[in-house]
């Protein structure tokens, strides 16, 4: 009985594999392709967040955790305290940073 069930399960899995592979080959992958749409119907959701990142650049970093640099009046950026928790400190000692 168990053997029979196992054989049935295996056959079902292989049949599914064959069908899915046929569908995938018949419909080339594109963003809005039937392949993805079909999958969406089966509970697939676009992760909805761009993972595009460029972590590697040869620029120097002196932003206070992304807040845009320190005021030169604080001993250059060696002075630092004013950076934390403030958005948009001056970066060139005179002008505020351009709106991003």
């Amino acid at each position: 009985m168990k053997k029979q069930l196992n054989a049935l399960m295996l056959s079902a899995a292989l049949a599914g594999l064959a069908v899915g592979t046929h569908v995938a080959q018949a419909q080339p992958v594109t963003q809005d392709s039937a392949k993805v749409t079909t999958a969406k119907g089966a509970g697939v959701r676009y992760a909805g967040y761009s993972m595009d990142k460029e972590k590697h650049a040869c620029k120097g970093q002196n932003s206070c955790k992304g807040n845009g640099g320190c005021k030169s009046g604080d001993n250059g950026c060696a002075g630092k305290n004013s950076c934390k928790g403030k958005g948009g400190c001056a970066t060139d000692g005179s002008k505020p940073p351009k709106a991003a």
Binding site: L5, A12, L14, G16, G20, T38
Partner: peptide
């Protein structure tokens, strides 16, 4: 189970 498996494997294969 067989029906469920058939559906799952079809989806998985469809998604490569």
């Amino acid at each position: 189970r067989p029906a469920a498996l058939q559906e799952w494997f079809a989806h998985w294969a469809g998604l490569s």
